[in-house]
Nucleic acid binder design. Structure first.
Lengths: 420, 420
DNA sequence: GCAATTAAGTTCAATGATCAAAGAAAAAAA
DNA sequence: TTTTTTTCTTTGATCATTGAACTTAATTGC
């Protein structure tokens, strides 16, 4: 007993070898700025209390940030009660920077222009298609989107300070390389470097599901949660995860593939080649597989899967029992997939989004009830489920987040330099 | 298009509302101390380079920590090469504190005494049983364990500075309350407060799987990973998750229940009442269900499930094909469960531990190969799997981690106070 | 209408953590 | 023995932050 030794100790000592991120804290100016942005408006005294800093520091920091044009005072008339000197609200200067967020997909591209506060100033879409394209073609499409935004918002391209793009695929964020993407002909495409040749501003790319998750963290219901999950149901079924207020990306940047978790040993064949994947029961090809049996298609037989699915949904809504069963079955598998997320991760909230959310049969009360049964134990609180009405713009909005975030870090750092 | 608004914005502003943990960084003294502990030994100059602080700061911090009795210089003779003045290694003073880690279970309790560096000085076990007991009985057993450790290590109880306990159940860490535990008669037992009545030292309690995960993070293969998962196969199947060097506990403190993820829609009945849980194929009752069919039991019929399982394993090892099939089938379901973890979290490493790891049929090459097939895509790197030889002491060792960690924080903070 | 009260914001000397630079110490190499 | 190299220490300087006193601007009560 005395000679117990931990089987595979790595070297001497104990404790984690890698410094946790908490090692280097954000500077006071950045914290202050972020707090004001998060609250929309906040007085110096409010921020001082929240960040537990002295009033003097608040004054100093504020004057620096105002001098750098990042914050501004707001003349706030509305004041019902309270004695003392009225507080002066501060807000982020919206025009301090402009940022573009883009969602690329095979159906249509989507882009928004936001100001420094994240407000959407313009939004445009561009038809896309299923064909794989070259890097140059994609860059042309990106350029078109930016041009359209510039026109709509009546600004100049030079006013834009950064761009974020979410792509359906696998991304090396560090180097701005698209490792694999259904839209591109080639693998390992140097998107960010190529972008830098055309535009004089930084480009941030990431997986599109991650961008949507960031949208929820920055603008949506995730804002007041430290941990939550986002499930996207589109062509495939993806997942985004926020842990400790931070997007978790997994170790290989592949994205979290809820669609390829197995819900049935030796189950239905999935297009990934495996059997029993959730997607094999929830993907469009899975649903349309049985359309011919449920519906008398006639000439509709040759439509695209998407159209077939819409047709099936119409039928189900108008009472076709066979069509309903197809959705019902898919819903049951979805319930299993979601319950697995709850069991494995125990989040306080799962947000479901994506194009397919319009097929509300998937989220019938009975489906959610089923999920609840599958996760409920004596002790577990039920996990909240939020279903987002589908909107492409949200993805594009989320794509702007890394750009806004990096830009704020940089501008606040510049402010620290100059006010020394 | 212009009137796009995020559907459910929470108040004004944007960005996460809760400050991420990075807000308040660890003090330099604490960082310095942690670095020395993590490396076992380190010279001032090494630490200064690693933490990117000046040599002057290193000297100042070191002298404070030495004065407080937390660090000490080591006369290091071994020095092969190098010019200049030889560096003076520093190490944590092992005797600066003593800590006890305890794992409670229905088979046997287990406890270790460690010094301040985490070295195990003594280890003891105490038989347990399946009966539910009162808080007082459990406290008596804890007292016995501590007494035995004190005797073995020839120290006094007063020398112990903190205790950590891992229990199989659901725990409210904050308040030291055991919400539910298979060992206790009652729910919501105030273990830590009751402990405080008997002993004059802090008690830290947590779920046992979390404690094992901490053992891997502090002493095991997880030390050099920022993210990894630990899967425990015992009576049930549990999981621990480390994200960004920090143990992720889930939002309800229920523990991450890999055992109750569904691997088969409408599958085998689980003792939780659901169908298709992984545990329904991997738990002891699942394996022994078919023992009667595979083996001619005779009088062995009335043995405990554990013994039956050992019998089955012996049979399989000596070539019984039917017995082998039982393990083989369980192994296949385990492969599905693990592949789901990989798909959902994409960790670089999964460590498998727990009592059942001795049934190596579960981890036959074909099982791991199957798992690999189920997760492999064109782009995903295979996830490393490490199988820990089972050892109760590791769990107890991990139970000491929160105690050691909290103690270091406190002692270093005291050091900062005194050296002002 | 006028003091008293309350709270926000400002100013400024004091603090203290950290650093840069210079120097002392201890070894190997020339 | 001298030079080089690296570690460690010392010291004065710097800069972010605080605490406390002060100013400003409002409400409340007489």
């Amino acid at each position: 007993m005395m000679n117990y030794m931990y089987p595979s100790a790595i070297g001497a000592g104990c404790g984690p070898l890698l410094q946790s991120g908490a090692a280097k804290a954000a500077s006071l100016r950045l914290q202050f700025f972020q707090h004001v942005r998060a609250n929309g408006r906040a007085a110096r005294a409010d921020v001082a209390r929240a960040l537990k800093i002295s009033a003097g520091s608040a004054t100093a920091v504020t004057s620096d940030l105002i001098a750098s044009g990042l914050l501004q005072e707001v003349s706030e008339q509305t004041r019902e009660t309270g004695r003392g000197r009225p507080s002066v609200a501060l807000e982020v200067v919206p025009t301090a920077a402009y940022v573009v967020g883009i969602k690329l997909s095979s159906r249509r591209h989507c882009a928004v222009l936001t100001d420094f506060v994240g407000n959407v100033l313009a939004g445009v879409t561009l038809p896309s298609n299923n064909r794989r394209r070259s890097l140059q073609e994609l860059l042309d499409q990106i350029t078109s989107l930016i041009d359209m935004l510039v026109q709509q918002a009546e600004i100049s391209v030079d006013d834009i300070d950064a761009v974020g793009i979410g792509v359906p695929g696998i991304v090396d964020m560090e180097n701005g390389v698209v490792r694999w993407c259904s839209l591109l002909q080639d693998d390992d495409v140097d998107l960010a470097p190529a972008f830098a040749v055309r535009f004089d501003m930084p480009l941030f790319i990431d997986n599109d599901t991650n961008m949507l998750t960031l949208a929820e963290l920055w603008f949506g219901e995730g804002r007041d949660k430290t941990d939550f999950a986002v499930v996207t149901i589109e062509n495939g079924v993806g997942m985004g995860l926020v842990v400790n207020n931070t997007l978790y990306r997994g170790s290989h940047g592949v994205g979290l593939e809820l669609g390829h978790t197995k819900v049935q040993m030796d189950g239905a064949l999935c297009r990934c080649g495996q059997r029993g994947c959730l997607e094999a029961y929830l993907g469009d090809y899975a649903l349309t597989r049985e359309v011919g049996v449920a519906l008398d298609l006639g000439e509709a037989r040759h439509r695209t899967p998407e159209d077939l699915l819409d047709l099936l949904f119409e039928e189900a809504k108008s009472g076709n029992a066979a069509a309903k069963t197809i959705f019902r079955r898919a819903g049951r598998y979805l319930a299993v997939g979601l319950s697995n997320v709850v069991q494995l991760f125990d989040p306080p909230l799962i947000i479901i989004s994506g194009e397919r959310t319009r097929y509300d049969y998937l989220f019938a009360d009975e489906v959610l009830a089923e999920m609840k049964t599958m996760t409920l134990s004596d002790v577990r609180q039920p996990c909240a489920i939020a279903i987002r009405p589908w909107d492409d713009m949200v993805w594009a909005h989320g794509a702007a987040v890394p750009a806004i975030s990096a830009l704020s870090d940089k501008l606040v750092a510049d402010c620290e330099m100059s006010n020394t």
